[in-house]
Design a protein around this nucleic acid. Sequence first.
DNA 1: CTTATGATTAGA
DNA 2: CTAATCATAAGA
Length: 206
Amino acid sequence: MSRAAAAASSEIGAFVERRDWFDRPSVTVARDLLGMWLVHDRAQGRIAGRIVEVEAYQGPEDLAAHSARGRTARNEVMFGRPGHLYVYLIYGLHHCANVVCGPGDKPEAVLLRAAAIGPGVELARMARGDVAPTRLAAGPGNLGAAFGIDRRLNGADLVAGPVRLAAGPRPSRIARTPRVGVAYAGRWARRPLRFVIPDDPHRSRP
DNA sequence: CTTATGATTAGA
DNA sequence: CTAATCATAAGA
């Protein structure tokens, strides 16, 4: 990779500053999130990575969405204003990070499933241990671990930070597949609501 | 109170 | 293929 290309790929664009950017259906936000930067500013430094894989979870009618089983203490944030982080613990050990979307009061969200870590690689490695760079944030549990996102950040404002989103290079192509791990959701399990950059080495699976 | 299970992962 | 591991939600 040339010096110019390397510089370009590590360039973080403008942060999302308008809440209404998030106030859209999860499918729309999900597509837009691919290629964008996820940035976490911490005392130790900044961890940033480009999002390469996401899943859309639609409102109450989507049987795979947490919000389909009513409002509870856990999914409270999904029912709140768009532009916040919904973080929950899964299988007793993995933290999954979601972007709360709209439109309006509709409790939709986008699960962040994989990212290519750019600036802050060493910090991410410290948090994750010694793993291959392409696997650092591949899979929702790994992404949470790599970015240092846990339940303390549940409800965090994505406009205010410390976790924010910024413009990045748009992918030339976007692939759609069914979502992972939601076989119980009947028809909704088969819907193509997973969005991924085809053949990206940082994605969690084909 | 008890109990089943999950938007997962690593390892055999 | 399965164990790990616990917050959550649902049921008694």
